Computed example of a mutant assay.
Amino acid sequence: MRKILFIFTICLVYSFSKICLAYPNEKNGFRDFYWGESLQEVQANDDIYDLEYIWYNQGENSVEYTAKLKNPYISNQEANSITFYFWNNKLYKININFYTNIANPEFLKQAMIRNFGEPYEEHSVFIWYGQQTEISLSWGTHIIGLFLNNPYLKTEAIKDGSLKGW
Rank of each mutant, 00 (worst) to 15 (best):
M1P: 04
M1S: 12
M1E: 10
K3H: 10
I4N: 10
I4P: 01
L5M: 12
I7T: 14
I7Q: 06
F8S: 11
F8A: 13
C11V: 14
L12H: 04
Y14V: 12
Y14I: 13
S15P: 05
S15C: 12
I19A: 14
C20P: 01
C20Q: 09
Y23K: 04
N25E: 07
E26D: 09
K27P: 06
K27H: 08
D32G: 06
F33P: 03
W35D: 01
E37M: 15
E41K: 13
V42K: 00
V42W: 02
V42S: 00
N45C: 04
N45L: 02
D46H: 09
D47Y: 02
I48H: 00
Y49I: 09
D50F: 06
E52C: 08
Y53W: 11
I54G: 01
W55H: 09
Y56I: 07
Y56E: 08
Q58S: 11
G59E: 13
E60Q: 11
E60W: 01
N61A: 15
S62F: 03
E64T: 14
E64L: 04
K68M: 07
P72S: 08
I74W: 00
I74T: 07
S75Q: 06
N76R: 06
Q77M: 12
E78L: 13
A79H: 02
N80S: 14
S81D: 09
S81T: 11
T83C: 10
F84L: 07
Y85N: 02
F86P: 01
K90E: 11
K90N: 12
K90V: 13
Y92I: 11
Y92M: 07
I94G: 02
I94T: 02
I94A: 01
F98I: 14
Y99C: 00
Y99T: 09
I102Y: 07
I102K: 10
A103Q: 00
N104I: 08
E106T: 11
F107K: 08
L108I: 12
L108G: 00
A111Q: 07
M112I: 07
I113P: 01
R114H: 09
R114L: 15
R114S: 13
G117Y: 03
G117S: 08
E118W: 03
Y120W: 06
Y120V: 09
E122S: 09
E122R: 03
H123T: 11
S124D: 11
F126S: 10
Y129I: 12
G130A: 11
G130Q: 04
Q131T: 10
Q132D: 15
Q132Y: 14
Q132N: 13
Q132G: 05
E134Y: 03
E134Q: 14
I135E: 02
I135L: 13
L137N: 02
W139R: 00
G140H: 05
G140N: 12
H142C: 06
I144V: 15
I144C: 05
G145C: 04
L146Y: 03
L146I: 10
F147D: 06
F147Q: 07
L148Q: 01
L148H: 02
L148C: 04
L148A: 00
L148G: 02
N150E: 15
N150A: 15
N150T: 11
P151G: 09
Y152G: 04
L153W: 02
L153E: 02
T155V: 10
K159R: 10
G161R: 00
S162Q: 12
S162W: 03
S162C: 04
L163E: 14
L163I: 15
